[in-house]
Design a protein around this nucleic acid. Structure first.
Lengths: 360, 360
DNA sequence: GCCATGGATGTGACCGGTCACAATGAGTCA
DNA sequence: TGACTCATTGTGACCGGTCACATCCATGGC
């Protein structure tokens, strides 16, 4: 690609093309098979031969060809992450965790975005990605598109050699996948209990749209309410998972003074709720307590700083990779699933009877 | 491929392994070369032969092997994105744009994270990635690590056939790369002018740490100030690009009442500044105007909603891919570089003399 | 009727690794 | 000393495509 006339490189001949295993063998005075053995750390190679091969590799700048290896081996040394989103904090962090683990293990990371949750689109993507020759697959199943991808996966992969991993909010039904997930139930339960402890008569819940009608977060929230005999109010359902939708939904419902605490599906929603409270002249946490999920980087700097549940998404991603058992020295026992932590900041406080007059 | 007992496919033998080009040829009654021609849309194939081949492909579920193609062709059909971060909005969106364009063009996207801006780390990553056989490379040069990667790239790539693209804040010096960047100078100039128009005597600037001591944003800011003869105050430099560092830096400097407007390096910093103003009892925009860069999704919902400059990162990413000229029908003329837009919201307003007493 | 032209098709070699198997030579044991 | 084991090394075929080149046949101009 470079047209400028540069170096003529080594004086030997024209090593224009990259050095191959046979070039190394010739220089080292051994057979190509011996070179292959050295590269792969095979045991039965004499110290003498090994050293000469390593020297030759260094002097030629030899690097094994992924393509050739993949062709011979029948599978690429790649893990493809199937996700519907790259920007949202949780997704991006999980991807970062996967990449880190994969990089350490010498495995390349590819990414394939699901452009919509249309079943046809999802199925096409899965079909494309689950060619056994194209390596392992990790599905980020945080949302509907991901859940559909997971559902489409088994049929395709059933008899193939492809290895796949599933990251999500809950354990999938099929047990032929290796999965990693957060204990959302406990997390939601704890966050709800925190609000109840502050004296709120009950806690409202704003849900993120999900494939399962009753998500794990919802379940934990209900469990906490029932544990203390608190009423279970209807779930607030914004039209989408955007901050804007949460803001709009909150503007509609926050009028009723009986809402004193809201457990939001994630921090982005919580931001919309905070803003809606501000728009309605409600003070947080004076009139309303708000709790989120995820602990996005901005959360500590919202006004008020957001109480939220922190998830170790990067740790989740690392584990999702580890369970695949591929790459350099795969761990027999992957790291444990990281547990969520409740981070209490300013947006949650003691319950106070709301003055209907405070609404302007 | 599939164990569930549907079709037994061809009665011939056991098509356990994936079908190859020669299998297709046998079924279609042509040579493997003809199959190759059909796959690649070569012209000189009779309609009859083409049809039989396509039928055979369908019935065998044939799919070409990336690995074999890469091996024969000498280069993989992959673009690797080299970046220091996956979570920050701008990075993630750019990645999304690249992925979208690449997906459309039938090119796989790989990602390689620079774990630090340590020159050794960066160089090792570049060295690894710029193997001409492993496809094209796109460097996200938004920060120091990216800039270093770019600097390391030419030396490695010089004699290789690798195609690379550079995405950044400014055009790199070397012109042997294909680059795409935002006009940060104009963007900063416009944002600064907006504040000056509101009557502010001058505008302070909080910079994001960058490789160039004088970034383009800084240049545009200065130009706008000089255009109206406003003084150029010293740049506020947080220790890092985090919201937390911006918050800390702002707490230190916002005490002086002569600061009435701050142009922040990005929205994350702006959030920290907003929060610092709140902590100091300053009203925004009453006492202080704050403007950011990027227009992250939360910006409209901050209190106050943030005035900021919107960048079309996804568009930038798409263009970065297009300039590589790879994949299906590469565009001869890539889309234009998207222009930034100033989005005026609540955090910027008319200048007012700050009452020193308002500081608590 | 002859040869140039060109579309359609096939054959062999090759890309750079890996696997299966054979061959060599030294050391061990009966 | 012969048979056997075992470490070390080498050879050939193969993975699934692509490229370069040869071949075949139909057409058309002279």
């Amino acid at each position: 690609m470079d047209v400028t006339g540069h170096n003529e490189s080594a004086a030997t001949d024209s090593p224009r093309a990259a050095a191959s295993i046979r070039d190394v063998a010739r220089v080292a005075g051994v057979s190509y098979q011996t070179v292959s053995r050295v590269i792969n750390g095979h045991s039965s190679v004499s110290a003498d031969a090994r050293e000469r091969v390593e020297t030759a590799i260094g002097s030629l700048g030899y690097r094994p060809s992924r393509a050739a290896r993949a062709l011979a081996h029948g599978m690429e040394n790649v893990v493809t992450v199937l996700t519907s989103n790259t920007s949202l904090f949780g997704y991006a962090q999980t991807l970062a965790g996967i990449e880190e683990a994969a990089r350490t293990a010498g495995v390349r990371v590819a990414i394939r975005v699901l452009s919509s949750d249309d079943p046809d689109v999802v199925e096409a993507a899965v079909e494309q990605v689950s060619d056994p020759r194209s390596g392992a697959v990790i599905v980020l199943g945080f949302d509907r598109a991901g859940a559909r991808a997971l559902a489409a996966l088994p049929a395709v992969v059933r008899a193939s050699a492809a290895v796949e991993s599933y990251v999500g909010r809950r354990a999938p039904k099929a047990d032929n996948h290796r999965w990693t997930w957060f204990d959302d139930t406990v997390a939601a339960e704890r966050a709800t209990a925190h609000l109840l402890d502050l004296g709120h008569a009950t806690v409202h819940h704003m849900a993120i749209p999900s494939s399962s009608t009753v998500g794990d977060r919802q379940r934990g929230w209900q469990r906490a309410l029932r544990a203390v005999g608190a009423p279970v109010p209807p779930v607030i359902r914004p039209e989408s998972w955007t901050t804007q939708a949460a803001h709009a939904a909150a503007l509609e419902v926050l009028g009723s003074p009986e809402i004193t605490a809201v457990l939001c599906g994630n921090d982005d929603q919580a931001l919309g709720v905070l803003r809606a409270a501000h728009d309605l002249g409600l003070s947080v946490p004076g009139d309303l307590s708000v709790v989120g999920f995820d602990d996005i980087p901005g959360a500590p700097f919202f006004t008020p700083a957001l109480t939220t549940v922190r998830f170790d998404f990067a740790g989740l991603g690392r584990r999702a990779f580890e369970v695949l058992g591929i790459g350099h020295d795969p761990k027999p026992e992957p790291s444990p699933i990281p547990q969520p932590t409740l981070i209490i900041r300013e947006s949650s406080g003691p319950a106070a009877t709301r003055r209907p007059t405070s609404k302007r």
